[in-house]
Design a protein around this nucleic acid. Sequence first.
DNA 1: TTGTAAGCGTTATCAT
DNA 2: ATGATAACGCTTACAA
Lengths: 330, 330
Amino acid sequence: MATIKDIAKLCGVSEGTVDRAINDRAGINPETKKRIMEVVEQVNYKPDRIAQSLAKGKTRTLGLIFFDLNNDFIAALVDTIETIAKEKGYFISLVLTHGIKEEEIKGINYLLERKVDGIIVFPVGKQSDYQELKINIPVISIYNKISDEIPYVGVDAQSAMRDAIGYIADCQYERVILVNSSITKKVKSGLNVYTLQERQKGYIEGIEKNKINEGEGSLIVEGLDFRRMDALYRQGQGKKTAFLCICDVFALEVLTHFREQAIRVPEDVGIMGFDNMSIRKYVSPQLTTLGYHMTEMAQKIFAYLMDMIHGSDIPKDTSFPCQIIEGNSL
Amino acid sequence: MATIKDIAKLCGVSEGTVDRAINDRAGINPETKKRIMEVVEQVNYKPDRIAQSLAKGKTRTLGLIFFDLNNDFIAALVDTIETIAKEKGYFISLVLTHGIKEEEIKGINYLLERKVDGIIVFPVGKQSDYQELKINIPVISIYNKISDEIPYVGVDAQSAMRDAIGYIADCQYERVILVNSSITKKVKSGLNVYTLQERQKGYIEGIEKNKINEGEGSLIVEGLDFRRMDALYRQGQGKKTAFLCICDVFALEVLTHFREQAIRVPEDVGIMGFDNMSIRKYVSPQLTTLGYHMTEMAQKIFAYLMDMIHGSDIPKDTSFPCQIIEGNSL
DNA sequence: TTGTAAGCGTTATCAT
DNA sequence: ATGATAACGCTTACAA
C-alpha cells in the first residue's frame, strides 16, 4: 500500500503538501495539487484509517452492544443504525453479550481500548457496574436505563402495557395473565431489568384500572413456565382469559403451546405480544402486539449519539410511544 | 487515559521496560515488573489498540459483509461468528449492503482502509468487481462463489434441491413449481447469483430425475409474483402441486398468500422452504424446509479465516450438506 | 506556497 | 536487565 510518504517522494514534494492535496486543505498551488492527485490515482492511494485515528484521536467507529441478534427487532435496529452510520462515514463494531454481564463489561472495555467514538448499549449491567467502568466517551443506553446521567432512549413500555390491558378488557376478557421474563432471578443476579419492570408496572396498573382479574390480583408467570400457565388458565374456570406476553417471541411460544393442546386462539384463550416482530404476520392467528417506530427510534439514537460526540447535550430520557398492532389473537 | 509513557515516568523506568512488564516479555527483573504492574493497576492502564494496530500492522478485527440482518439465518451466522471471534480476541466490524453492489465495494474499501485482518463476505459482486478491488488480505466468500482463487464456503444447494424434489415426489406430488428470487433481473444487473443458480440447477435436475411436471418442464416463478403463482397453480388442473421456495421467507409469504385465499396447505397445495429459519416452528402448518448446521459452518468459516490470516492454505471450495427438515407443509 | 518536525501510543531493534 | 530510539502513517503547528 502506498503511503503519503511514497507519494511525496514520487512527486518530489513534502508530506505536508501531499496532505494538503489529499484533504483539500488551503494553501496549495492548484498545479501542485493536480500533479499530486494524479499520482494519488495512479498508485491507488487509500488512507490508513488506523494512522488517521491515532493522529486525530477519533476513530469514526461506533460500538454497539446487544444481547444477541435472535430478536428480529434488535436485528432491525442494528440494520438501521448501520445504514445511517455508514452514510455518515461511521463504522460499526458489534459486540454481543448474550445477556451475560461479564461479557458486557469485557465488551465495553474492548470498545474503550479500541477508542470508539461512542457506544450504544442495550445494557444488562446496572449503574454500579457502569460506575466502575469509568467510561469517558458518549454512551446511550436503550431499552434499559442505567442511571440518571447516562442518556436513555426507549419505549414507553409502562403506559403501553396499561393501554394493552385496556384494549384486552375492551375485547371482553376478564382475566389477563402476564408472561414476563424470569425477572426475579435476574434481579437476584444483579441484572438490569428496567424495561421488564416497566412493562410489569404497566400490567399491574392496567389490571387495577380495568377491573381485570377480580379477586385474583396480578397473575404473573416468570419465564416460559407452561405448567404454571396451564394451571392459571384452568383456574379461570371458563372466564375469558388472555396471556399478555413480555415479547413476541414469548407470545409465539405460548401460542404454539396452546395450539399443541388444541386450545384455540382466540376462541379459548387470547394472546398478545410486545415488539411487533416482522414474522408475526406469518403466524395464524396473526399476533396482536405492541409496536413502535423502530426506524425513527434508530435515527433518533444515532442523531443523539452524534450530538454527544460533537459536544452537545441531549435529553437524558427519551421514550417512544407504542401502538397496539391489531391481529387476530385476541 | 494513562499511557506507557506515563507509567514509565511514574516508575522511573523506560518505556521499553514497561512494555516488557505489561506484555510478559522476557528480560525483566521480577521486582521491577512487580513494581510496574502495581502502578499499571493503580492508574487503570488500558492499552490503546489503535496504537498497537499501527505498530503491529494487525488490528485483530474481522470485517463482515452481508446483505442485511432480516434473514434470521444470517443473524445467527453473525451471532455465532461474533461469539467465537470475541473468544479469540477478535473484533467484528459489520457492513450491510442491502444487496447493492456499490455498497459492497464501498464497504470493502472501508474495511481495507480500516486494516481489518480478514473479511467474510456474502457477496453480491462478482469476480470482475473483486479483481478491481485488489484485495490484499484474507477473504472468504460464503453462499456465493466469487472466483476460483477466493475461498468459498457454502451449502450444497444443488443436491439439496435435487433431493428435495425427490422428497416431494415421495409425498405423491406430480408438479413442483420453483419460487426463485428475481434471478434474471439480478443477472442483468451484474449481480452474483451463484447460490440462486445452484438451487435452480438442483431443481431442474430434480424434476427431470423424478418425472415431475410431465409435459410442463420446469416451472419457475421469479420473485414473489403471486399472480403467476396462482396461474401456474390453476394450470395444474387438480394435479397435486407443490411450491418449492428458494428461502423460508419466500415460503412463508407463499404460505400466507394461499391461506388468505382459503387454499389449504398441505391439502390443496404443498410448500417447502430453504434455510430452516428458527421462526418456522411458530407457523402452522409447520414449514418443511432444508437446513444445515449453521453453527458448524460458522465455526469452519472462522477457523479457515484464522488459518489464512496465519498464512496457511485452506480449501478453495467447502460445501456443507443440507438435510430435509420435516414439517407439515407437504 | 511549501517544508519541517513533533506528536499520537505502541512495538521492536540495538546498544549499554 | 534496562534504556534509547526508530518506526508505524497520518495530522498539525510552525517555520521558511
